[in-house]
Design a protein around this nucleic acid. Structure first.
Lengths: 242, 242
DNA sequence: CGCCCCGTTGATCTACATCAATATAAGTGG
DNA sequence: CCACTTATATTGATGTAGATCAACGGGGCG
């Protein structure tokens, strides 16, 4: 079992959280955000490489990422794995598991991370008094559907260089929204994980990084990426990518 | 504008609909299903090739497919298209549009079709009295997320023959659930549409159909498919596909 | 310090795309 | 209802993006 951390009155709550504008409370009236404070009663720390949940685990909560990053991956009976997402702070994880209240994917920390536990039963309870919470949750799920569809488009319609370019731009934008530099960041995932996510081999990903660097779009040294020519990358990606 | 058909008292309602066990009411207590009857006040007929909604349209409802079939597709600014799903009777369409209440995809009829209109405002209204409706809707959205993730896995991890085999098995299963033959059916979509959906060219799809037939897995004549060796197809697909 | 994982780069192979020609079915209008 | 047109499907020949196989180098971690 993971270590759970009780959220004490002195802790940060939704209403005072820096991720306020990105996470669950996004777009909710300020008055209602404060009601969310009682919703998150605990947090979970996940050390790098460990799982927040596994395929088959009972779904009792969804989770807002407070710090760190995670990947979600499907695994079929033959052990074949497909990464379906890399999640950053402020994003919600676990909405795959609401069909039969069993998760159908694994959620694994890419680095030491911490998530806020949003218990479903308590959310339902609270939603009776806070109607906007219901809509908000619906929006988050719809967003997740769109994210997945966007990935389908990336895999179905783009060539390798376009996929990687789109991946970098997408990451850049999400990091920017968190207040980090959109042009300089550390990749939290390996070449192999990027390749798996994008339907490519790690060699192809590595070669593309080298090529992008050679052509002046980026500077890259292991997992450290500097984007030098965002406009160029954007053109490369072909789409105005998601 | 599409032609709307009022649902009169004599019409079929959710509680008497044959798709009862597959569609929105799935798993809801019988007593609550009857309350859904007042939810669906109209239906829409969509002729083959016409759209139920387009990218950018305001989302005021989701739709339960009553007859026929539709495809959903993304389209980026350059006109590049990616089909993200083929939808059959009993399935719900339109859940992509709940982020900003604008659809981000097109929904186009593959044949003359009819859908039940489930207005969001009325669903919210009704959900106050029928708690299971809220859960049900959540399940449907989670299912859609999983469907998309499964497709990501198909595109990211499977080779062409595996993709097409998985596609046929999946279609077969869904048709079987509707009471149709799992081994003999008419494809409602073209080779090109199948190819787009699976990230392949129409030529590759056509060749695979021919090869599957040559190797005795199926009989195929244009859009008419007979599955002769389901077990063989299953093995071919590699995964136990979704 | 030493081990092992991760990333890079090169050589070669192949699955699928592309280009092209023909066949068949489905509309369409006289 | 048939002639004509236009979509859709099949099949073949060839090209290529990306996979696979293989060797090596560098960093991080115990």
């Amino acid at each position: 079992m993971q270590k759970k951390i009780a959220v004490t009155p002195e802790s940060t709550h939704c209403s005072t959280c820096m991720l306020n504008e990105i996470c669950l409370p996004l777009g909710m009236p300020r008055s209602e955000v404060s009601k969310l404070d009682e919703l998150v009663k605990e947090r979970i720390r996940i050390p790098k490489g460990k799982a927040l949940f596994h395929l088959g685990d009972k779904t009792e909560a969804i989770y807002g990422i407070r710090s760190g990053s995670l990947k979600t991956q499907l695994e079929d009976s033959s052990g074949q794995v497909q990464i379906t997402g890399f999640l950053l702070p402020g994003e919600i994880i676990g909405m795959d598991g609401l069909v039969d209240n069993r998760h159908v994917s694994h959620a694994i920390a890419l680095e030491d991370s911490e998530v806020c536990v949003i218990r479903l039963d308590e959310m339902d309870q609270l939603a009776l008094q806070v109607p906007s919470l219901q809509w908000q949750f619906r929006r988050l799920m719809s967003k997740e559907i769109n994210r997945a569809h966007q990935l389908v488009m990336t895999l179905g319609a783009l060539r390798s260089e376009q996929r990687l370019a789109a991946f970098l731009i997408n990451l850049s934008q999400r990091l920017a929204a968190l207040g980090y530099s959109p042009t300089e960041f550390i990749l939290r995932m390996s070449r192999e994980e990027i390749g798996n996510y994008l339907g490519l081999t790690l060699e192809t990903v590595s070669r593309l990084f080298s090529r992008f660097a050679r052509e002046g779009f980026i500077r890259v040294q292991q997992r450290e990426v500097h984007i030098l020519d965002m406009q160029g990358l954007r053109q490369l990606s072909g789409t105005d990518c998601g």
